[in-house]
Measured scan of single mutants.
Amino acid sequence: TYTWNTKEEAKQAFKELLKEKRVPSNASWEQAMKMIINDPRYSALAKLSEKKQAFNAYKVQTE
């Protein structure tokens, strides 16, 4: 089980997950979700809006 003390740690864990699963920077949210949804870190960020925000930040960083 994973635990995160801060929102920032949770966001980092979520981005690490995207990186580890090699989600391409041109992937849509739907494509990315299919690649990461079974990992416990997918739940790091509770709100869908937070997940999408972190995903978009990840995409910008990896382009």
Rank of each mutant, 00 (worst) to 15 (best):
L17C: 07
E9G: 05
I37S: 13
M35N: 04
P24K: 04
Y2G: 15
A13W: 04
W29P: 00
K47D: 14
K52V: 12
F55A: 03
E20F: 06
N5P: 11
L45H: 02
L18V: 02
K15V: 14
F55I: 03
S25L: 15
R41F: 01
L48V: 08
K59G: 04
N26Y: 14
N26Q: 09
E30A: 11
E63D: 13
K11T: 15
A10W: 02
A54G: 03
P24F: 03
A13D: 06
A32G: 05
Q12L: 13
E8S: 09
E50Y: 04
A44W: 03
Y2C: 14
K19W: 14
Y2E: 14
K11V: 15
E9D: 08
A32R: 00
T62S: 11
E8D: 08
Q61T: 10
S49Q: 07
A13F: 04
A46V: 12
Y2F: 14
V23G: 02
A32E: 00
P40D: 08
K59F: 04
M33Q: 14
I36C: 07
K7D: 09
A44F: 04
A44M: 04
V60F: 14
M35V: 07
N38S: 14
A13G: 04
Y42T: 01
D39Y: 01
A46N: 14
A10N: 04
T6E: 07
T6I: 04
P40S: 05
F55Y: 07
F14K: 00
K59R: 10
E30D: 13
L48E: 14
T62V: 14
W4E: 08
L17G: 00
D39E: 04
Y42V: 02
D39W: 00
Y2T: 14
A57W: 10
K21A: 10
W29A: 00
T6Y: 04
K59Q: 10
D39M: 00
K7F: 09
F55C: 04
R22E: 13
A46R: 11
A27D: 03
L17K: 00
K59N: 04
E20R: 02
A13S: 08
A57S: 10
R22C: 11
A27N: 03
Q53H: 10
L45I: 12
K47P: 08
T3Y: 10
S28D: 09
W29V: 02
T6L: 05
K47I: 06
K47A: 12
I37G: 07
R22H: 12
K34M: 14
K47R: 09
T62P: 08
Q12W: 09
K51Y: 03
R41M: 02
D39C: 03
E63P: 10
I36Q: 00
E63M: 10
L48W: 07
L48S: 06
Q31R: 07
W4R: 04
S28F: 04
Q31A: 09
A27F: 11
A10C: 08
S28H: 08
N38R: 08
L45Q: 01
E16F: 05
Q12D: 11
R41A: 04
K15L: 15
Y58W: 10
T62N: 12
Q12T: 12
P24D: 06
S43C: 13
N56I: 12
N5T: 13
N56W: 13
N5C: 14
T1I: 14
E63N: 13
R22P: 03
Q12G: 09
K21P: 01
E8A: 13
A44S: 08
Q31E: 12
E16T: 09
K59M: 07
Y58H: 05
S25C: 11
E63K: 08
L17D: 00
R41K: 04
M33P: 00
E9T: 05
E20S: 06
K47Q: 12
D39F: 01
A13Y: 05
T6A: 04
N5E: 15
L48M: 10
S43H: 15
Q31N: 10
V60K: 15
Q61I: 09
F14N: 00
V60C: 14
K7C: 08
A27P: 01
N56L: 14
S43M: 12
T62F: 13
L18I: 04
V23N: 02
K59E: 03
Q12R: 09
I36W: 01
Y58C: 03
R41H: 02
K15H: 15
Y42W: 12
R41T: 06
V23M: 02
S49H: 12
Y42S: 02
A57Q: 11
N5L: 10
S43T: 10
K52N: 03
A57C: 13
T3Q: 14
Q61V: 10
K51T: 02
